[in-house]
Design a protein around this nucleic acid. Structure first.
Lengths: 201, 201
DNA sequence: CGTGGCATGTAAACGGTTACATGATTTA
DNA sequence: TAAATCATGTAACCGTTTACATGCCACG
């Protein structure tokens, strides 16, 4: 077994909403999972076809006239079983990839001010992320529901927020520390060049 | 252009230690970057060859008799320049992939107890991670140095710790919440509602 | 003498992104 | 009518992992 995880995300989306098109699945992943998952159309459309082929999802007949319009899919019983089996298996730790931390670690090799600017940029991105997560939180407050899945959605959201908040706090204290460190650094009286100068090579 | 980031990690490692073999580079990445980066031999060895070809690293002559032994490499001036240029460019946000959060989000679809068990497992993994990071911290305390790179290493380490700690705290409070939720859960055979009720628009 | 760690490499397969091509529908 | 958005798909490319092949060396 062990099919691509794209398949399971698609099945999962279909388990929450009865009829979705590839386009909507993509959008739902972006909107709801933006902080911890992503899929491209190039993955989603072929996956949907394959899943339909294997009977895990069912393509809804468009019923309308030709001229290619939205194609919806629904989860089959078989698909739901497959999803549940996957959910029950131990989760895998995805290979970590954090370019920011790499560049921070090698910060001593970079020109003065570079690392500091990266931290500032990280703060900006995390502030945006936090705003997005808070938006989702408030939306779900405005439309309360007794959906039994909701506790899990809220837990997921709160983990995203906890991690973002921790990063933000780290950034705040680091900004102070780093400006001290980089102030001592040799070379360049200028207060940090920005990174916009592109390079060849 | 934008060469693979493997190349820059390799250059970065070589910027800190004058002579390393592919094997040592792999090990150093695992030991030091385990929480935020990874590379396989299948990436490292070809990359080293390519970099040597382009003059960014220099293969040291083994000097000893044949019978294939360790091949060391050193960073060239050109390689250092290349590394610095990369460091100065904005860091990219790697596509997020967190299977745990995916399975947690879909927890309502899983069999009772599944989500809870995933959280317990997350706690275990994060405890191990924290122990590893603390080990690195203590090692660097035991061998103090005036290496000018050290502040950056410590900052990277402290970010890793801050994130792990936050996840651990989230896990602690979640364990309590979740056992309450899952205790109530009826083994409903028929699947639940859709998310449109809470998530319109 | 055998096991485990050190050490180097390659080929195939895979998962995923990107760029591209196409066209319908809605809204300004 | 132009632009934005909805919508579907494919092919090429790329980075990466995996499995495999090889052999040295130290230690018990």
């Amino acid at each position: 077994m062990q099919r691509s995880r794209t398949a399971y995300v698609v099945l999962g989306m279909l388990s929450m909403a009865p009829n979705l098109s590839g386009y909507e699945i993509h959008k739902a992943i972006e909107d709801n999972f933006g902080s911890f998952w992503g899929e491209s159309y190039g993955q989603i459309y072929p996956t949907l076809k394959r899943l339909a082929n294997e009977g895990l999802v069912q393509a809804k007949e468009p019923a309308s006239a030709p001229g290619r319009r939205r194609q919806e899919y629904a989860l089959t019983d078989e698909g739901r079983i497959c999803l549940r089996q996957w959910l029950a298996q131990p989760f895998q730790n995805d290979p970590p990839r954090n370019e920011f931390m790499l560049k921070l670690f090698f910060g001593g090799e970079a020109a003065p001010g570079v690392a500091l600017e990266h931290v500032r940029e990280l703060q900006r991105r995390n502030q945006r992320m936090m705003a997005t997560l808070e938006g989702i939180e408030q939306a779900s407050r405005r439309y309360p529901s007794d959906n039994p899945n909701k506790p899990y959605w809220m837990l997921t959201l709160s983990l995203g927020m906890a991690l973002t908040r921790a990063a933000l706090e780290w950034g705040k204290s680091t900004l102070a520390q780093l400006s001290a460190v980089e102030a001592l650094e040799p070379r360049s009286p200028q207060p940090a060049k920005t990174m916009d100068e592109t390079n060849p090579a």
